[in-house]
Amino acid sequence: MTEQERRTGRDESEEERADRRWGELLQEVRVTQMGVQILFGFLLTVVFTTKYDSLADTDQNIYIATVIVGAAATGALIGPVALHRLVAGRRIKPQAVEWASKMTFVGLLLLLCTMAGSLLLILRVATHDDFVVWLVAGIVVWYVLCWFVLPLWARRRATE
């Protein structure tokens, strides 16, 4: 048994590992795709409401930036599906898994920005209070802790 097999507890070929990792990645992407698509769909409707015209220029700029980042997040999180479809059968699954994983990570970062922008806009319109920026910053820190810091900490502990 190789050192890698002892560490992972799996006896699988590179192709079997790629198949397993691809399945896991698709499950993860399904969860985020649904959320980003619902959020992006909601964002697209805001401009058609009567309230939009009465928004301050700053709020309209936040909205526009959030829609653009939301569109980018949607693209990055749907990208792995298109990648899989276009490279299926080309015998490059291990590389495709790596590329799709990177797209998903970028998509998560963009989703974080989309959620922060949406929250900032909603709370600015709903409350008009100065503490909104601090509240949104706290939520962003929470997302970063849950989505990145804790998983990286767990990964580091597992490899020590």
Rank of each mutant, 00 (worst) to 15 (best):
Q27G: 04
V31P: 02
V31L: 15
T32H: 12
Q33P: 03
Q33F: 03
Q33K: 08
G35R: 09
V36G: 02
L39Y: 12
F42G: 15
F42I: 12
T49S: 14
T49K: 03
T49R: 08
Y52M: 05
D53I: 04
L55I: 04
A56C: 03
D59P: 04
D59Y: 06
I62E: 00
A65F: 06
A65Y: 04
V67H: 03
I68P: 01
I68C: 07
G70R: 04
A71S: 10
A72E: 00
T74F: 08
T74E: 00
T74H: 00
G75E: 02
G75V: 04
A76I: 02
I78M: 10
I78F: 08
G79R: 05
V81C: 03
A82D: 00
A82V: 15
G89A: 05
G89H: 03
A96N: 11
E98S: 15
W99K: 13
A100M: 08
S101M: 04
K102C: 04
K102I: 10
M103T: 09
V106N: 07
V106T: 15
V106C: 13
G107V: 10
L108I: 14
L110C: 13
L111F: 14
L111I: 06
L111C: 07
L111M: 15
A116W: 07
A116H: 05
S118C: 10
S118T: 14
L119D: 01
L119C: 05
L121A: 07
I122N: 05
R124K: 15
V125A: 10
A126V: 14
D129N: 12
D130I: 10
V136Q: 05
V136P: 05
A137K: 09
G138R: 09
I139F: 15
W142R: 03
Y143W: 13
V144G: 00
L145I: 15
C146K: 04
W147N: 03
W147V: 01
F148G: 00
F148W: 15
F148Y: 14
